[in-house]
């Protein structure tokens, strides 16, 4: 296990180097033109300003040197300042709590509703409830997130007036529930299906037959033997998706006007403030990769049958 962990961590290094290089290259090299061109209102920027900014952000250096500087800065925990000289770390500190709240709520909804529905429909395979759940998940899977978002916003916020159509500043937990449902909807459907398949598959397993043959009460067979073993793929799926949720928050945050990391990233892309885009995107990638790694390691803990060499 220890050796496997170390090997996986070492494998992460080239992937991280590759993704950060890719991000840096795309953001700084692909757009072309001068990123400071439209930064001074209606009049063109003074030469001295452009020269000073170009100098400050090292844009005259060759690209490999820029990337090397970026790497050393990030490794020292220095994310730099944006084009308005605000430290990027401050912007992230402002935005991150909201997004983490939103993601946690979404994962909680996914886990509770998804696993709950999946277990019930898996145990009653082929019944009316099972078929309705299958159709329900089918519909959830085919609704793009922004369609779900606008539908709920229109019905609950505008027609019925139960919720605020947009989330107020500070983002209290209660106002984040509906956006979290929207963010969770797609993965909730996946979780439900995964749980169902897992339950149906394990129901035929030898250990379940043994437990039934021993005369254990059904509650114990389901609760102890079946559920625990069926949870393994579901838990790993949920774990992987935490990382992806942070990226998916871009759309949800936009619809409900939440000032989180997704809004920060998307706004910075629109303003072409690449000094914010690169570190925030890097942060999201790191969270995503670490979540994946953690899940991989957890897999071995949850399922002793899996052995890493």
């Amino acid at each position: 296990m220890g050796r496997y962990t170390i090997r996986r961590l070492l494998q992460l290094i080239p992937v991280l180097l590759g993704t950060t290089f890719l991000i840096n290259f795309m953001v700084w090299q692909l757009p072309g033109g001068n990123p400071f061109a439209n930064r001074c209102g209606d009049r063109p920027c003074p030469e001295a300003f452009v020269a000073a900014m170009t100098e400050q952000f090292g844009l005259n250096d060759p690209f490999w040197l820029q990337y090397l500087k970026y790497l050393t800065n990030v490794l020292q925990g220095n994310l730099g300042v944006n084009f308005n000289q605000v430290p990027v770390i401050d912007l992230i500190k402002l935005a991150y709590p909201t997004t983490i709240k939103l993601a946690l709520l979404a994962v909680a909804i996914e886990a509770v509703v998804g696993i709950g529905l999946g277990v019930i429909s898996g145990l009653k395979k082929g019944g009316f409830f099972d078929s309705s759940i299958t159709i329900f998940t089918l519909f959830l899977l085919s609704l793009p997130v922004f369609v779900t978002g606008f539908t709920l916003q229109w019905i609950l916020g505008i027609q019925l007036g139960i919720i605020n159509p947009t989330v107020s500043a500070g983002a209290p937990w209660s106002e984040l529930i509906v956006p979290a449902i929207v963010l969770a909807s797609l993965n909730m459907a996946f979780t439900t299906r995964l749980t169902r398949t897992s339950i149906v598959e394990n129901f035929r397993a030898d250990y379940v037959r043994t437990a039934v043959a021993k005369g254990l009460p059904r509650r114990r067979v389901v609760g102890i033997h079946l559920l625990r073993n069926s949870a393994i793929p579901v838990v790993t799926f949920l774990g992987t998706e935490i990382g992806a949720l942070m990226g998916g928050a871009i759309v949800t945050e936009g619809i409900f006007n939440i000032t989180g990391i997704g809004g920060l990233l998307f706004g910075s892309i629109g303003r072409r403030d690449y000094t914010v885009v690169v570190p925030v995107a890097t942060l999201l990638v790191v969270v995503y990769l670490l979540a994946n790694l953690l899940v991989d390691l957890l897999y071995g803990v949850l399922d002793p049958r899996i052995r890493y060499e």
């Binding site: 890719l22 991000i23 795309m26 692909l30 992806a244 759309v251 995107a281 990638v285």
Partner: peptide, 15 residues
Amino acid sequence: GVPYLLGAILILSTV
């Protein structure tokens, strides 16, 4: 390694 939507937004907005 790049989350799908994030990657697509980054590439498309820079291209």
